[in-house]
Simulated scan of single mutants.
Amino acid sequence: MVWSITSGLELAGTRFLWALRKPRGVADADVLPAGFQERTDGRGLVTMGWVPQIAILAHDTVGAFLTPCGRNSLTEGLLYGHPLIMLPIFGDQGPNARLMAGRKVGLQVARNEDDGSFDRHGIESAVRAVMVEEDTRRVFVANALKMQEIVADKELQERYVDEFVQPLRSYITDGNSSTAAETWY
């Protein structure tokens, strides 16, 4: 997986900051392909430590966010109106990515239909479509900014929570509290 991403980023030719979680059991020298950092020097930075993701996403120079589309990262990326390059791996990430692709806030990295794998060309294509190709980028940016309005609207988010909690409270106060409590455990 790491090798496909590195090759795709290198082929795309765009600037990047990559917070890479080092795979277990792999020596530091073996994480990235030989010469990758030298070939991308001046336009790319790979860090294998913790990074302040929200502070980075808040910076004006960020052009897009390559994300697996977990709920938290997805929300953080949209909070700052960034178009997405989506690379879901497991859990809720696939449905989240399909939903965001349907809303045209970014592009999901193409996968092999037989085994779900992706390659450097899929990474390159998605990065270039979201970051470089003006026609597609314009659409993704506009739609990401529309989603930003929704995600950043605190009153709207509080209303959603209230609308979710109210029926639960009604259920408990209607004399069904033991059944409700059993349902939650």
Rank of each mutant, 00 (worst) to 15 (best):
A34D: 15
A34V: 15
G35M: 07
G35R: 12
F36P: 06
F36C: 10
Q37T: 15
E38P: 10
R39Q: 13
R39I: 14
T40L: 07
D41N: 11
D41P: 07
G42E: 12
G42V: 06
G44W: 03
G44D: 10
G44E: 09
G44L: 09
G44M: 11
L45N: 06
L45S: 03
L45C: 15
V46L: 14
V46K: 10
T47I: 11
T47A: 09
G49L: 09
W50T: 03
W50M: 06
V51A: 11
V51G: 00
P52H: 05
P52R: 01
Q53R: 09
Q53H: 13
Q53V: 01
A55M: 11
A55P: 13
A55K: 12
L57P: 03
L57A: 05
L57N: 02
H59A: 10
H59D: 13
T61C: 15
V62W: 03
G63T: 15
G63K: 08
G63D: 06
G63V: 07
G63Y: 04
A64T: 09
A64Y: 04
A64P: 08
F65M: 01
F65Q: 03
L66I: 10
L66V: 08
P68V: 05
P68R: 00
P68M: 02
P68T: 08
C69V: 14
G70D: 05
R71D: 10
R71H: 12
R71N: 11
R71Y: 09
N72T: 15
N72A: 08
N72V: 11
N72R: 14
S73L: 02
L74V: 04
L74R: 00
T75W: 00
T75E: 01
E76K: 08
E76M: 07
E76D: 14
E76R: 06
G77S: 11
L78I: 08
L79F: 08
Y80S: 12
G81M: 01
G81K: 00
P83H: 03
P83L: 04
L84W: 01
I85M: 05
I85D: 02
L87K: 05
